[in-house]
Simulated assay, not measured.
Amino acid sequence: MILTLTACSSSDDSSSNNQYFNPPSWIQGTWTSEHGQNDFRFTSDDFCYILASYETCYKEGIESGHGAIEAIESITENSYEVGLSGGGTAASWSFIKISNTEIELVNPIEGIPNTLYYKIN
Results as ranks from 00 to 15, higher is better:
residue 64 S to M: 08
residue 77 E to A: 13
residue 69 I to A: 09
residue 80 Y to I: 05
residue 61 G to W: 02
residue 50 I to P: 00
residue 71 A to L: 05
residue 97 K to Y: 00
residue 62 I to E: 01
residue 59 K to M: 13
residue 81 E to Y: 13
residue 92 S to W: 10
residue 101 T to A: 06
residue 47 F to W: 02
residue 96 I to E: 12
residue 93 W to R: 10
residue 57 C to H: 05
residue 54 Y to W: 03
residue 67 G to F: 06
residue 54 Y to M: 08
residue 95 F to K: 04
residue 57 C to N: 04
residue 67 G to A: 06
residue 65 G to I: 00
residue 56 T to N: 09
residue 62 I to N: 01
residue 97 K to G: 00
residue 49 Y to A: 12
residue 48 C to A: 09
residue 73 E to G: 01
residue 55 E to G: 03
residue 81 E to T: 14
residue 63 E to A: 08
residue 49 Y to V: 12
residue 65 G to V: 00
residue 82 V to L: 04
residue 51 L to D: 10
residue 91 A to F: 14
residue 73 E to T: 03
residue 48 C to S: 11
residue 61 G to L: 10
residue 97 K to S: 01
residue 98 I to L: 12
residue 48 C to R: 07
residue 82 V to A: 01
residue 60 E to K: 14
residue 49 Y to Q: 12
residue 58 Y to R: 08
residue 57 C to K: 07
residue 93 W to I: 11
residue 65 G to Y: 00
residue 71 A to M: 07
residue 46 D to W: 05
residue 86 G to P: 05
residue 75 I to R: 04
residue 101 T to M: 03
residue 99 S to I: 10
residue 62 I to P: 03
residue 50 I to R: 01
residue 46 D to G: 10
residue 85 S to A: 10
residue 60 E to P: 05
residue 67 G to V: 05
residue 51 L to G: 02
residue 62 I to M: 02
residue 88 G to W: 07
residue 50 I to A: 01
residue 91 A to L: 14
residue 67 G to S: 08
residue 95 F to T: 05
residue 62 I to L: 05
residue 59 K to S: 14
residue 61 G to I: 05
residue 49 Y to D: 10
residue 53 S to N: 13
residue 98 I to S: 12
residue 90 A to D: 14
residue 80 Y to C: 04
residue 47 F to D: 03
residue 58 Y to Q: 08
residue 77 E to F: 12
residue 81 E to N: 15
residue 54 Y to K: 04
residue 49 Y to W: 09
residue 79 S to H: 03
residue 95 F to W: 09
residue 99 S to Y: 09
residue 70 E to T: 14
residue 90 A to E: 15
residue 84 L to A: 08
residue 57 C to V: 04
residue 56 T to C: 07
residue 85 S to Y: 06
residue 99 S to R: 07
residue 87 G to L: 15
residue 75 I to K: 01
residue 91 A to E: 15
residue 53 S to K: 12
residue 70 E to N: 11
residue 60 E to N: 14
residue 95 F to S: 06
residue 100 N to Y: 04
residue 100 N to Q: 08
residue 66 H to P: 04
residue 93 W to H: 13
residue 57 C to W: 02
residue 72 I to V: 15
